[in-house]
Write a protein that binds this DNA or RNA. Structure first.
Lengths: 192, 192
DNA sequence: ATGTAGGTGTACCGATCGGTACACCTTGTC
DNA sequence: GACAAGGTGTACCGATCGGTACACCTACAT
């Protein structure tokens, strides 16, 4: 029970920040919505920024965990898992409480590259790309790091289009593009 | 001289909002940095939100104007212009004061889809995609709207990777992917 | 000469911001 | 039964938020 209250705070803060934004959410709002006294919050976290970093860490673990688990469920071979990422993304985009990428938003609101929040957000992209590279390597694809970066680019583009564009299924469009990328890579063509 | 002061305000506000963010920039900051009295600002715009919408409109015109002009300068045929978009993006990303996409940031900070700021930001994406579709049509490509959406997805992905990823040249990676897309389209293969 | 439009500076409004102080309540442990 | 740890509620801090009020200063039109 010792640190469960703290974890509960981080969990609820993550949801609230994701739904309402970081700067737009005041600490008083957090107190009411999370049902935790302000005194307790500041006993666990020195500043609001520290709390935001903690929520980003939780979100990073959750999102990467969910995504790669789902990829493994949807496909058996490493190659097919890379493609299945876009099916998983399509599921995510279809959820009623999808509100875009929390990390992109964090970067938007805290632009300074040296800011801890910005660092944590960009770290998520790097970690995700590294995991993709590992799978691409297991799939026997050439230049797995390049493949991973391109798939990351497609993923980020799909997220933005799902958030801002009004088009139908950006994840499935990205999937079609990804198929082309893998096809070329498997044909031995060196990525330009 | 009548409306030049107003235009000057919008121009400077655009720069400031782009550099520092919308919510993070207070009206008092705007007064100091833009060198315009608060009274004047509120004589031209009823609210801060109205001013933000005006800056987004200016930015939309400027960015689309610059991008398509640069595409026309870099290539002569419609087909090559589509590809040249990514060379133009590469130039943009290389500018020292590149700070990501102002419209993505606007959507991040104002998430409500019914909010005028959100609408204006998403409209930019739609307008850009429509212009791309027109060029794809002139290039004689099949399903120009699909092509345009995919190129838009690549463009947005490249912007995000340029902002958040630490990789080398996301615009040129997107360009390589775009070449593959056009190659497939020209081979008559129906986009999946 | 007089009115009007567009501009300025300053002082101010209530609300909210992130953060702190303090007194108190509960729980488990020794 | 004493004590520390972790929690609560409330009241408060100075700073800043978006926005307004008011008096004044030009420049130009009639």
């Amino acid at each position: 029970m010792a640190r469960s209250k703290r974890d509960e705070l981080i969990q609820k803060a993550t949801d609230i920040f994701y739904r309402r934004g970081f700067q737009a959410t005041g600490m008083d709002t957090l107190v009411v919505e999370a049902g935790i006294s302000k005194t307790s919050i500041y006993k666990h976290f020195k500043t609001k920024d520290d709390l935001i970093v903690a929520t980003l860490r939780l979100r990073d673990e959750f999102l990467r965990g969910w995504l790669f688990r789902r990829m493994a469920e949807l496909a058996s071979t490493p190659r097919d898992q890379l493609i299945a990422m876009f099916d998983a993304l399509d599921e995510w985009f279809s959820e009623p409480d999808f509100h875009g990428c929390m990390f992109a938003k964090a970067c938007s609101e805290f632009q300074d590259p040296d800011h801890p929040i910005n660092r944590e957000a960009t770290a998520h992209v790097a970690r995700l790309s590294a995991q993709l590279a590992e799978i691409a390597d297991r799939a026997g694809l050439p230049n797995p790091n390049d493949i991973a970066r391109r798939l990351s680019l497609l993923k980020e583009g799909a997220v933005v289009m799902a958030t801002m564009g009004h088009d139908s299924r950006p994840a499935l469009e990205a999937k079609a593009i990804a198929l082309g990328i893998l096809r070329e890579a498997e044909a031995g063509r060196t990525p330009v």
